[in-house]
Write a protein that binds this DNA or RNA. Structure first.
Lengths: 219, 219
DNA sequence: ACTTGTGAACCATTTCACAGCT
DNA sequence: AGCTGTGAAATGGTTCACAAGT
């Protein structure tokens, strides 16, 4: 109930995904250390997270998977279906479309936008691609509240503002640009260039460390 | 010189990218607060980061861009060219290939791998696609030290181990799976599913916050 | 006057370690 | 005996605030 930190939310999302698949396999209960093994977080971390969401397990059985799932859903999923749009229909965007359409019935992609005349008017990765000049209208008409932004760096700022002015409240930003938007708009930055460089750095360096791995000292 | 935290490294990578583009525009000097404005970090944070890398500016001119760039390069770029491979040639992988080939002459993609017979033997996004059964040999022959892993969750663990057994030291992991690898292998996790869910969460919620934005209270 | 560099304070997050339950 | 729930400690990261330089 206390307001969850961004990190906690991330982990809850991971727990939820895992728990769903365990439930599908017919599992009923799980201990914190098992959740830990499967996610790479520590058992103490898991217990702490579940503590803040207020779900409580039993020392003998651990956590009841379906109850825990409901608790997490209750926290993460305020309401029903959420309308997305995708801005910039490159490879990355198409990957996200495939992703969203495959596994997330709770989310709907109402349109994609691009300027490339070859793309406009076509259906790409299952998404109708419109010209970006129509964006404002379409976002409004469909009450789109979240967008995936995957346009070149130069465009990102302008397009993001346009989106926000038409009702968007959260952005998944793949372009390598910091957005300056009103404080009530959430921006999740995914910067693949930075990730590549980071991996390159650690690949070149001698010794490095697992992030988020099960850090049991080998041996 | 002190060992840099992962967060600091990330920011250095961002500074470097920005400084490069400023240098191209003919800029010579920059103040910490300008770096801050452009990256979304705080000015104090910028100064702290530059402090730990040991580069020192002047109170009148700020930081000399090209000198600062050299300092950052010195820290982030131990040696020359790094060989990458890409495992799983889906949309996401192609996006990364485009990325790497466009802007990163310091990195070379020696091969892509997949099991799809339609892809094997072809050149996809500028990368020769080979069957995954040839992976071990090819990684070794080309001294590949870093891979992009973009395969389905079920395959990820097995394939990652195979890569590591053939000399890979760092992995950019796009599959939604925690990898348990020796502690000297670095894994950077990019989980697009989690990012989407996070954005969805904040889009639905009433009030939320900019991450990494310039947090000057709007007012 | 406006900057940098930085000790110290602050805040966030994680882990420890153990009481209490079954 | 082995788990959960949780204060308390520890760690990690960021910001404050100011001396010192120009």
């Amino acid at each position: 109930m206390a307001n969850l930190s961004s990190k906690t939310i991330e982990r809850l999302i991971v727990y939820r995904r895992l728990l769903k698949s365990l439930l599908d396999k017919g599992l009923q209960n799980i201990y914190s250390h098992q959740l830990a093994e499967n996610t790479g977080f520590s058992a103490a971390q898991v217990r702490r997270d579940l503590m803040v969401i207020g779900y409580t397990g039993s020392p003998t059985k651990g956590y009841n998977i379906s109850e825990l799932l409901s608790s997490i859903f209750e926290l993460l999923d305020p309401e029903g279906v959420l309308n997305f749009a995708v801005i910039g229909m490159g490879n990355l965007a198409r990957a996200v479309c495939a992703y969203l359409q495959g596994k997330y019935p709770r989310y709907k992609i109402v349109a994609g936008f691009d300027v490339d005349p070859y793309k406009v008017g076509r259906v790409i990765a299952g998404v109708r691609c419109c010209h970006i000049s129509e964006m404002g209208r379409i976002l409004q008409e469909n009450a789109v509240r979240a967008v995936v932004l995957a346009v070149p760096a130069e465009e990102a700022r302008r397009v993001a503002e346009l989106a926000v002015n038409n009702g968007v409240r959260a952005i998944l930003n793949f372009s390598p640009t910091m957005l300056s938007l009103p404080a009530d708009v959430y921006v999740e930055y995914v910067d693949i260039g930075v990730s590549v460089e980071k991996v390159a750095y650690f690949a070149k360096k001698g010794r490095s460390f697992n992030t988020g791995g099960s850090l049991e000292e080998q041996e």
